[in-house]
């Protein structure tokens, strides 16, 4: 089970309404390498991963990704609140308004809805952990692209925090992978 804490993992300081940036941030709300993909990928893979280290890591990182999804949602909410329809349309969010008003929806920066086809689970710890490491790198570079698209110091600060978390998760998954190799050798699986 999960227990909700009524706080963000990291603050979201927003200087002003910025619809252009909000549109880009949907990449990490409902895109292929989004925080949503990460959370569902890890929390779904953990059942069949063989080592307790990897089970713990997939559970704990998957949980942290849900907190990151909340941070991205908060950013988009704060950047769009109170925006008139004409401004939304000018920023390329007209189609979003037609289908969702100012509600959030898990789609990418171009409006393509989130799909489970973005993630995988092979039931093979080597394949799954490599996918997880790749996904952390893809999310890291997406954050770097996002940072280049804004000059809002508050947004940059939060995006840099999220980028750094991808680096740490990558490191931890690599350690879990090394241990899985040791474990499989000791079991003489191959």
């Amino acid at each position: 089970m999960w227990v909700y804490e009524k706080r963000l993992e990291y603050p979201v300081r927003v200087e002003r309404t910025d619809l252009r940036m909000a549109k880009y941030l949907f990449a990490q709300y409902g895109g292929p390498d989004s925080e949503l993909s990460a959370a569902v990928r890890y929390l779904n893979q953990r059942y069949t991963i063989p080592t307790n280290r990897a089970k713990g890591l997939l559970t704990d990182i998957g949980t942290e990704e849900m907190a990151h999804w909340e941070i991205i949602g908060t950013m988009i909410y704060k950047l769009t609140q109170g925006a008139p329809v004409e401004e939304l349309e000018k920023a390329g969010l007209g189609a979003h308004f037609v289908e969702h008003d100012r509600a959030l929806f898990p789609h990418d920066a171009a409006g393509v809805p989130w799909t489970a086809a973005y993630i995988q689970a092979h039931g093979d710890p080597i394949a799954d952990l490599h996918e997880d490491m790749a996904s952390e790198q893809k999310a890291r570079v997406t954050y770097e692209h996002l940072i280049r698209m804004t000059d809002d110091p508050g947004i940059i600060d939060t995006l840099r925090f999220l980028r750094e978390r991808e680096v740490v998760h990558f490191q931890r998954f690599g350690e879990a992978l090394n241990y899985v190799h040791e474990y499989m050798e000791s079991r003489k699986y191959y």
Binding site: E5, R7, L8, E9, Y10, P11, R53, G56, L57, D60, I61, E64, V168, H169, R172, E175, A176, Y179
Partner: peptide, 18 residues
């Protein structure tokens, strides 16, 4: 709380592999 909470999360992940 956010600062100390982050330290706890970071150490939890570290301990999973150490």
């Amino acid at each position: 709380i956010m600062q100390v909470g982050f330290v706890v999360v970071e150490l939890q992940l570290y301990l999973d592999t150490h």
